[in-house]
């Protein structure tokens, strides 16, 4: 084992230098992508607004007021986005709903990240028969109508936020697993990994120390692209009434309420819809930009 401790320090600086160079290059390229940068700024604004906005309003998200039902937007009484059919302030509800939508996006993506990366890295690292079997399972799962299974889960086990987080995350890891596996397969043949293998480092240590850090780029891209997908699923479930429960809300649930009265109270539809669409749009653009930036071969 003494030999190992001598090989590793020599191998690591090399890969770190490569990694850093890649990232600096990629960030420089990303900065030149105007659409992605604007999207990033919009996203930061949305997140800041969602976090700080509600405390700046005199209303709480579940304050009903039957003297102020379905008011149109006005700055005078601080109902910037108007009120809903129960007289609740829509500005606060939109932002609180945004917190939940973004939270689901992050948590469920994290779940899919952990499952996808460990599954893909394991399959790619071991290769051969293990890889074949594990990817066969992924193929089978690809054919599953997962969204329906999530609905089944929510119907059978009741509407439970935690369950929803996990279930949405658990259906989105397949792409991640496939991509990570492909990357791992090629990393596996690189010198610094070979050196560690020859040195007798245990497989999971190699995966953790050498493979996973080198996957960061591609994983970052897919995280950015998974977040909007996951948020879409959440809003879909909430729209159907299978997601969050009143008085808690999310953008999907707000769009659902808004769509019912859109002829008379269009603001109830438009504000949450705008926030939802803009956020998804920006995540997609940033993810696309990140992918182009990290993969120079794909550029025009």
């Amino acid at each position: 084992m003494r030999g190992v401790t001598q090989t590793l320090p020599a191998a690591e600086p090399v890969e770190e230098v490569i990694g850093r160079g890649l990232w600096t290059d990629a960030l420089a390229r990303l900065r030149h992508n105007r659409a992605a940068m604007i999207s990033l700024i919009v996203l930061v604004c949305v997140i800041v607004l969602v976090l700080l906005g509600p405390s700046a309003s005199p209303y709480a998200y579940d304050d009903t007021n039957f003297d102020a039902i379905s008011l149109p937007p006005s700055a005078g009484d601080a109902h910037y986005f108007g009120t809903d059919t129960l007289g609740r302030d829509l500005f606060v509800r939109t932002l609180i709903g945004g917190r939940l939508s973004l939270l689901v996006g992050l948590v469920a993506t994290l779940v899919s990240l952990v499952i996808g990366v460990s599954y893909g890295a394991t399959a790619g690292y071991f290769g051969g028969r293990v890889d074949h079997l594990m990817m066969r399972i992924v193929d089978i799962l690809y054919a599953m109508p997962f969204l329906f299974l999530v609905i089944l889960l929510l119907v059978f086990f009741g509407r439970n936020l935690l369950l929803m987080f996990v279930a949405i995350g658990a259906i989105n890891w397949l792409d991640m697993a496939r991509i990570v596996r492909g990357q791992t397969l090629s990393l596996r043949r690189r010198e610094f990994v070979e050196a560690a293998v020859v040195g007798g480092v245990p497989p999971f240590t190699i995966i953790r120390r050498h493979i996973v850090p080198n996957l960061l780029g591609i994983v970052a891209v897919y995280v950015t692209l998974t977040i909007p997908q996951v948020m879409l699923v959440e809003s879909f479930l909430s729209f159907l009434g299978l997601g969050v429960q009143e008085p808690m809300t999310s953008w999907g649930a707000l769009v659902n309420e808004g769509a019912r009265g859109m002829e008379t109270t269009p603001w109830m539809l438009i504000f949450p819809a705008l926030f939802l669409a803009a956020t998804l749009f920006c995540f997609n653009f940033v993810g696309d930009g990140l992918r182009d930036a990290l993969d120079p071969a794909d550029r025009k």
Partner: peptide
């Protein structure tokens, strides 16, 4: 990109 980002339950009411 807009089409991908706007869910169809938002497009439909609009």
């Amino acid at each position: 990109m807009t089409g991908i980002s706007i869910p169809n339950f938002v497009i439909a009411p609009l």
